[in-house]
């Protein structure tokens, strides 16, 4: 199982690298679809069918929106010669990556080996959850019963994002 997921994540990394370096913006957007749809397969392998259903539709809608933005604009990204600012940002990126690598190396040792055990929190959510919530789908039970506050907060963020989009797009720009 770990090997299969590793291969798919490797493909996702290749797709991400191509999406970042592609010259045509349309092919960059479509290459970013590799990452999203690869994530769907990972979710299916990791026994998370709820997430797979959401992710496959969300990825499609994201691609439609991105293509609609990119389609009738200048799609060629102009790669000019690297200047001082470009070097500075590249050096910053390398420095940040080294620092984050160090911290991840420390923190990954605190995690259990992949697939051996779940978090301690899983026990109370699985034991007797069906009697408490009456729901056969444990994820729905957690989303709307044990963690109802979270869901209400996320729904509020969704409303706020929609209001933000409407505000940005309805402004009459100064001529």
């Amino acid at each position: 199982m770990e090997l299969a997921i590793s291969v798919i994540v490797g493909l996702m990394i290749l797709g991400a690298l191509y999406a970042i370096h592609a010259k045509d913006l349309l092919s960059a957007v479509i290459a970013s679809g590799i990452v999203g749809y690869g994530l769907v397969i990972c979710f299916l392998l990791l026994k998370a069918p709820d997430l797979a259903i959401v992710q496959i539709v969300v990825e499609t809608i994201t691609l439609i929106i991105m293509v609609a933005v990119v389609f009738d604009s200048s799609r060629e990204e102009s790669f000019s010669k690297p200047d001082t600012q470009g070097y500075v940002s590249a050096i910053t990126a390398v420095f940040l990556i080294i620092v984050l690598f160090y911290f991840f190396k420390i923190s990954v040792s605190a995690l259990d080996v992949f697939g051996e055990s779940t978090l301690r929190m899983a026990g109370p959510y699985i034991e007797g959850a069906t009697e408490k919530t009456g729901s056969a789908n444990l994820v729905t039970g957690v989303v709307f019963d044990f963690r109802g506050y979270d869901t209400l907060g996320e729904a509020t963020v969704l409303v706020t994002a929609v209001l933000g989009v409407l505000t940005i797009l309805r402004l009459k720009g100064k001529k």
């Binding site: 809608i61 919530t133 009456g134 039970g141 709307f144 989009v165």
Partner: peptide
């Protein structure tokens, strides 16, 4: 499951309307 189907239905309406609103905008 008590109120969970009701929450499901109304959150479903909310999510559908939100994403449709973004797309239409």
């Amino acid at each position: 499951a008590g109120m969970l189907p009701l929450y499901n239905i109304f959150v479903g309406i909310e999510v559908a309307a939100s994403i449709l609103t973004i797309f239409l905008a």
